[in-house]
Amino acid sequence: MSLYELMRSQYKFSGHETDEPPRKFNPYYDLTSGTDKSATVEKKRLKYVNCFDVDKYAYRYMLQISEGIQFIHSQNIIHRDIKPQNIMVDLETDLLKITDFGISYDNDNLRQTIIEPQERKITDVSTSIYKAPELLLGVKNYSYAVDIWSLLILVSQWFQIDTDMISTSGKPVCQSRDDFYIPGMIDDGTQDGENGSDIRLLLSIFSKFGYPKISDWKEVSEFGSEDAFVGMFGENGDDKYVKYQSVESQCQLMESLLPRIGELTNLVVKEGIIRIMTRMVEYDSTRRITSAQLVTELRSL
């Protein structure tokens, strides 16, 4: 099965349900949807608890995926769509394999580099919450680091406590929906039953980790949508930006965003994963930990 299917299967219905509150009035939606306002559907919000055994699998799976990404990068390929749906799991051997290279970028493929020059790659790659911040801000000369960010968000999903979903069918959500929402440390709006958006994702990233001075994010100022960034957030950053904090504060923040991290019984592994993930959360991809460094750090734990 895919890693997504495995992760989804580990969410168990808690037996807790609440009535879904009415949506806030949205004039744009009401004017354009053409729906019958008199029609009502009884909705329930159902809570599911994450029972994924992080103590048994988190370190092992993180290392395997990192080794796979390192190999891909050593072949001068950017995967560009790392997510649990694209990782297969052999349940008998616990062997993981990365699949689906449909939108990958091969730096050695002359035809691809002509159609999609290395300095002007398409940014409409990666999926939902796994998109790196440089993609969200139009940096077209991005490189291998986008896969590292995607892995960061994937790993964060293992350490979340629960999720709640809206049911309108009377069946358990895990049986009736293909888009079962597995939360991570950030969100793009999908958890509210809506289609996710890049702007919601960017705001979520900045709300968790702050944002830097534009002068400290050369990728955006030189190769991305500097005007959009400055127009929305200004030039001077905020005092929440994670990389302006001490290493101790960065680790404390990361631990707070991984509420199940305390279930790791090996303290060396726990502290190592927290420390490594603070290096994965770097906005400037030129300073983000590389796949080779990531594997070396994980193997040393």
Rank of each mutant, 00 (worst) to 15 (best):
D188H: 05
Q75H: 12
I78S: 11
Y29R: 10
L110D: 14
K97W: 11
S176Y: 02
H73F: 09
Q252S: 12
I276L: 14
I72Q: 01
K131S: 03
L151V: 10
P84V: 00
I205Q: 04
H73P: 07
N86Y: 10
V247N: 11
L152R: 00
R287M: 09
T93Y: 07
V269R: 12
E263N: 11
S2M: 01
D238A: 01
M232A: 15
I214N: 05
F206C: 05
G272Q: 11
Q112M: 15
T286W: 06
G237Q: 01
R288F: 07
I261P: 03
N107Y: 13
A58W: 12
Y144E: 08
L137N: 03
R120L: 14
E67C: 13
R279D: 07
L96Q: 09
C51R: 15
I186V: 15
G210Y: 12
I78P: 13
I205H: 04
F180L: 02
D198K: 12
I261Q: 04
V242A: 08
P172R: 13
T127L: 00
T163P: 03
Q118G: 11
I166F: 03
P133N: 05
M280R: 03
Q75G: 00
S167L: 06
S33F: 09
L201A: 00
Y144V: 06
K240E: 14
K47W: 01
D162M: 04
D30E: 15
I205C: 03
G102D: 14
T286H: 14
N141E: 00
M62I: 12
K83I: 10
K56G: 05
M62N: 13
K56F: 10
K47E: 10
S143Y: 08
F71G: 02
A132I: 00
T190I: 04
E92T: 06
R8H: 10
I199H: 04
F159Y: 14
L203F: 12
P22V: 10
S9Q: 05
K240I: 02
Y130I: 06
L3G: 04
I273W: 11
V139T: 03
E219R: 12
V269T: 07
S74Q: 15
I161L: 12
I103A: 00
A292V: 15
Q245W: 08
V146P: 08
Y4I: 02
Y57R: 10
D187W: 06
S126Y: 00
A292L: 14
L96W: 05
D216V: 03
R80S: 08
P22E: 06
I98M: 09
E282F: 07
E116T: 10
I103S: 02
E194A: 13
S104R: 01
I103Q: 00
